[in-house]
Amino acid sequence: MSDILNLERLSTEAASNHENLEKKTVLEILNGINQEDKSVPFAIEKALPQIEGLISAAAERMKNGGRLFYIGAGTSGRLGILDASECPPTYGVSDELIVGIIAGGDLAIRKAVENAEDDYLQAWKDLQRFNLTPLDTIVGIAASGRTPYVVGGLEVANQNGLLTGCVVCNTGSPVAAKAQLPIEVVVGPEYVTGSTRMKSGSAQKMVLNMISTTLMIKLGKVRGNRMVDMQLSNEKLVERGIKMVMNEANVVYDVAKKLLIENGSVRKAVDFYKNNQK
């Protein structure tokens, strides 16, 4: 495990490009953070071929009944849970299609769980309750690329014939070495040295957005550029749905509202209307 614990070579642990932060004004601090944040999209751009490869492979499996699982610890684990939890209301899919798992369990979503990320075998144990199949994809998320929880989870997933990928912010990491399809987004030193919830976290969230959004599009959950299967769980979403039906079916507000309420989704409302116009 010594290779996993070696932090000296990690760019995410390198000294900040900014000195004497405590002596800076608020605006100087904000400008510095913003300056560093601007580099994130460019780092992601360099990794687009890696991102494409993982999404393409996962999409083929998901079209045949596979699922996507994110595993991570701390900020990385929370970002996986955030991305996964937003897919059901946004795209009307089951909450078991994309699942986020964090080291330490649900308690760790809000509070740090001591030593949870250091358990090499726990991620696979956490995954066991989902009755995994070879069609499933496991994506490890770790800014450092060295988290034992993630390394171990990917290793056992490989042994069991699952597709594995990762999102890390260093090159040549133990996590990437275990992933069949690694994504390495190298954002460099953080504004506050080692605070990977900053640029690294932003990069991870943007990549996870790309992964889940593209998968949902490829699984047919978007028509044109609209979320036609979104859950109508609040007034804002109902109003958005009504406007989508008005646009797609070319009907007035009251007709669109009636169609949406009676059919339960934008897709069903538009299809019902068009089928009955023939």
Rank of each mutant, 00 (worst) to 15 (best):
Y70H: 08
S212A: 11
A47D: 07
E190S: 08
N34P: 09
G165R: 04
T147K: 00
L121P: 00
L135A: 03
D37R: 09
N115F: 08
A177M: 09
R67K: 14
K63Q: 15
N20D: 15
S212V: 12
K24D: 01
L27F: 05
P49Q: 12
A256Y: 05
E190L: 11
N225L: 01
Y253R: 15
K46E: 14
A269T: 11
V113S: 06
G140H: 06
I141C: 14
M210Q: 07
I242A: 08
Y253F: 14
L132V: 01
Q180L: 13
N209L: 00
S16Y: 07
R197H: 04
S265T: 09
S212Y: 02
Q277I: 08
Q122V: 12
L10D: 00
M62P: 08
S265N: 08
E8C: 02
K268C: 11
E262G: 09
V222E: 03
G220P: 03
M62V: 08
Q204R: 08
L135T: 01
G92P: 13
A15P: 12
Q277L: 15
D119Y: 15
E19D: 10
G92R: 10
S85D: 07
V139F: 00
G161F: 02
Y149N: 10
I211Y: 06
S39V: 01
E96H: 11
K24E: 04
H18G: 02
Y191G: 07
I51T: 07
C169W: 00
A47R: 04
V99R: 02
A179K: 09
C87H: 04
K258L: 05
K199H: 08
C87A: 14
S233N: 14
M227V: 05
